[in-house]
Amino acid sequence: MSEMVQASIYLHGVLPLMEDLVEYDPPAARAIANQRLVIQFEVRDGPAAHLEILEGRMRHGTGRHNHPHIRLTFRTPEQLNRLFAGENVRPGIRKGFTRLAFLTKGFPVLSDRLGYYLEGEGKTQTGPESDLFQVRLGLRAMLGGMAAVANYDPSLADMAAASPTGTLLVRVLPDGPHGTWAKARQNGGHRFVATYMQPVAHANAVMEFGSLAVARRVIDGRLSAVVAIGTGEMRIQGLIPLIEKANVFLGRFSRIMGRR
């Protein structure tokens, strides 16, 4: 698996989870309190994303921000990956020397708290609020990770090219979180993008979890999606070729995350 794919997963599949984290977790919320900041992450000749912190909320964006306060440039994707893996890495800081305190004090708190919910004790918490939070994290990571893999995994480039253009809506019934994974035409080529909790005008295909409990069990790996589809606990409809391709990218994303 290439370092570029992993870096893209971190930027588009993991970094967005910070938005949900600061809404749910008090220590994370405190870490960004009173901050007004845009942090740009970018890999040279590779993926870029940014986090915007304002009034106790955080917003993730793909690509480059026009006016970041801090710009972290990673010479290689491997350098970014090591940072996300918790190693002491010094990216090139091209802007924002006066705002570095947040990077050395606030950001590690966010990183630790996210790790707590993704891989630590927080992952096993149960109850309506925990279920909803874990499903939000899982759904968002899945959609962003699928887009990252589809855009950057060279071994799946043919599959990405062969995928029909269109939008796959993934939602949790009856009124749970939802998001999309879509292939769009761009500059004579194509680009895969993920959205989360945005309005969806038309979905070419739909994948539905029958309930929050089903979604939690699938995301935790306690219920196989194959079985859930077979039993009707998950439902798929619409443009089957789009769902088939999405399934390939999801499988690759899951294996990459499982190997970390």
């Binding site: 589809i229 077979g230 009707g232 798929i236």
Partner: peptide
């Protein structure tokens, strides 16, 4: 595989 058919709405 049922996913290629109509899961929940057809025999397997």
């Amino acid at each position: 595989n049922p996913a290629f058919l109509l899961p929940g709405a057809c025999p397997y």
